[in-house]
Design a protein around this nucleic acid. Structure first.
Ligand SMILES: NC(=O)c1ccc[n+]([C@@H]2O[C@H](COP(=O)([O-])OP(=O)(O)OC[C@H]3O[C@@H](n4cnc5c(N)ncnc54)[C@H](O)[C@@H]3O)[C@@H](O)[C@H]2O)c1
Ligand SMILES: NC(=O)c1ccc[n+]([C@@H]2O[C@H](COP(=O)([O-])OP(=O)(O)OC[C@H]3O[C@@H](n4cnc5c(N)ncnc54)[C@H](O)[C@@H]3O)[C@@H](O)[C@H]2O)c1
Lengths: 224, 224
DNA sequence: TTTCAATTGTACATTATTTAACAAAAATAA
DNA sequence: TTATTTTTGTTAAATAATGTACAATTGAAA
C-alpha cells in the first residue's frame, strides 16, 4: 500500500532524529501565523496560556507541542516571540529553499500561480506546465506555460523539489508517475482522485471536496 | 472560544441522533469515491478486506466506520456496492439540495466557480460576489458577478446555506461577520487567516498553506 | 534576603481512536 | 444434512492524543 503514506515512518529514518507526529506538524503553521502576527506588537514574550486563549488550543497542548523541539520557554515569562517564531521558521523548513512547479494551467493552476505566500515559506515557483497547445505559451505571474512534455527534463535538470498537481482527475495517476520518475520529492495533489506514489515520496492530498462533504454532512446532521 | 469549533458538539444536539465523530466524517467521502468507482464494474459486493487493500485503511476500521450507521453488510459476502454507495450518499447529505455562493471573484473564486463537482454533492452555485467594480458584471460559469454590497440581502432572501470565502485575508473576518449576520449556515473558508464565527456556524478552514508547510517540514526532516 | 507569583516542562490520568480477535451468520462444499 | 469457508458486527485490547496536576525554576515584591 503506497497511498495514505503521509503518516508512516520512512524506513530510512535515522534514530537520532525523532519524527514529528503529524498532529503536531499540522498545528505548527498555526502557531507560526499567530507568532508572526505578534512580531510587530510591542510585547516580547507570550505565555502558553495567552496563546491558548487566542488560538483555541489548550495551554498544555501548546507547551507539549513546543517542548517537542527543546526548551524554548522561559519560566515565569513565557516564550520569547522572536525566538519562537524563528525556531518555528526553521522547524517548518522555511529557511530551506525549495523549488516548485505547477502541472496543469487551468483555473486552479492559474490561481496557484498567483498565490503570494510561497516566498515566505521558502518556495520558489520555477515553472508551469500544460498539455493544451492553446494554453502553452500564455503567461501567468511572469511565468510562461511550458509544454508538459518538457516537464520530466525540466524537473530533473533543475532538481525541482515539489510539484503542484492540478490536472484533471483522469490524468492524475499518469502525471504523478511521470513526476516520480523525473525525481520529484513531494507532490501537492489537488486532483480529487486517489493517487499512489512510492513510500519515499511526500504526497499531500489537498482534497478540497472533503471540505464540501464535511459541510454537507454536518448540515444534514443539524437539520435532523 | 468560537474558533476551532469543527469538532465540538452543538449544544442543541438531540440525544437520539448520535453525532458522527469527525474522524469518520473525514473518511466517508473516501469510501464514497471508491464505491462510486466500483459502481460500473460488474461486481455486486465488496468486502471490507478488499476495500482495505485498495484504500490503505485497515479492514477493521472500515467495518467499524460503516457499522456506525447500521448494518449494511451481508455476512460472508461483504457490502452491496450500490446499497452502500447510496447510503453514503444519504449520510453525507448529498441528496439534500444545498445552495452556495462564492465571495471574492479573484483567481481562486473563479476556479471555484468552474469546479464541476458541486452538483453531485447536492450543491447549487447560486451567486458570485466581489467588491471590485472592474470585476462586478463579469461572467464565470454563466453566473454574473454581483456587488458584494448586495450579498446580505441575496443570502437572506434566497436562504443560502453555504458561502465559499475567497477574499483577501484582511477582509476575511469582516466578510465572515457579514455572512453570519445574513444567516449563512456554513462557511468554506479559503483565506489563510484565523476566522471566528459563532459556535452554531459550520466553519471549514480549507487552509491550503498547511499542505505546503507540511511538505516543507517533511522535506527538511528527510534531508537531516 | 526571603517570600510570592507566574509559568514552564513533564509525569500521570483520561479520553479518543485504531487494531486485534472472535462469535454469529450465511453461503458453499462435501 | 453437515462441515467448511467467508465475512460481518462487536467486544476487548492496544495505541495515540489530549488534559490535569504539579514540582521546579525564575523573576519581582516585600
Ligand atoms: N477548480 C476548482 O475549484 C478545483 C477545486 C478542487 C480541485 N480541483 C481539481 O484540480 C484539477 C484542475 O482543476 P481545474 O479547475 O484547474 O481544471 P481545468 O480543466 O480548468 O484545468 C486542467 C488543466 O490541465 C491541463 N491538462 C490536462 N491534462 C494534462 C496533462 N497530462 N499534463 C498537463 N496538463 C494537463 C488542461 O489542459 C487544463 O488546462 C482537477 O483535478 C480538479 O478536480 C479543482
Ligand atoms: N490563489 C491561491 O492559490 C490561493 C490559495 C490558497 C488560499 N488563497 C486565499 O484565497 C483568497 C483569495 O485568493 P485569490 O488568489 O483569489 O486572490 P485575488 O486577489 O485574486 O482575489 C481576491 C478577490 O476578492 C475581492 N475582494 C476583496 N475584498 C472583498 C470583499 N470585502 N468582498 C468581496 N470581494 C472582495 C477582490 O476584488 C478580488 O477580486 C485569499 O485569502 C488567499 O490567501 C488563495
Amino acid at each position: 500500500m503506497t497511498a495514505k503514506n503521509e503518516s508512516k515512518n520512512s524506513d530510512n529514518a535515522k534514530p537520532t532524529v525523532k519524527e514529528i507526529p503529524d498532529k503536531i506538524v499540522r498545528r505548527l503553521p498555526h502557531y507560526y501565523v499567530q507568532l508572526k502576527n505578534m512580531l510587530n506588537k510591542d510585547v516580547e514574550y507570550v505565555s502558553s496560556e495567552q496563546l491558548a486563549s487566542i488560538m483555541g488550543y489548550s495551554s498544555s497542548l501548546i507547551r507539549r507541542d513546543l517542548s517537542h523541539f527543546g526548551q524554548f520557554g522561559k519560566k515565569s515569562y513565557g516564550y520569547d516571540i522572536h525566538c519562537l517564531y524563528s525556531n518555528l521558521h526553521r522547524i517548518l523548513g522555511f529557511n530551506h529553499e525549495k523549488s516548485m512547479v505547477i502541472i496543469g494551467a487551468g483555473f486552479l493552476g492559474r490561481a496557484l500561480a498567483n498565490n503570494k505566500s510561497y516566498e515566505e515559506r521558502g518556495y520558489l515557483l520555477r515553472g508551469i506546465f500544460d498539455k493544451d497547445p492553446a494554453i502553452i505559451g500564455l503567461e501567468f505571474n511572469n511565468l510562461r506555460v511550458m509544454d508538459v512534455e518538457r516537464a520530466p527534463e525540466f524537473i530533473a535538470e533543475n532538481n525541482i523539489d515539489v510539484a503542484a498537481l492540478a490536472v484533471p482527475a483522469l490524468e492524475a495517476q499518469k502525471t504523478a508517475d511521470m513526476l516520480v520518475k523525473a525525481g520529484i520529492k513531494g507532490i501537492w495533489d489537488f486532483t480529487e482522485t486517489p493517487v499512489e506514489v512510492p513510500e519515499d515520496i511526500i504526497l499531500i492530498e489537498q482534497n478540497m471536496n472533503d471540505g464540501l462533504c464535511k459541510i454537507s454532512c454536518k448540515l444534514v446532521q443539524k437539520s435532523k
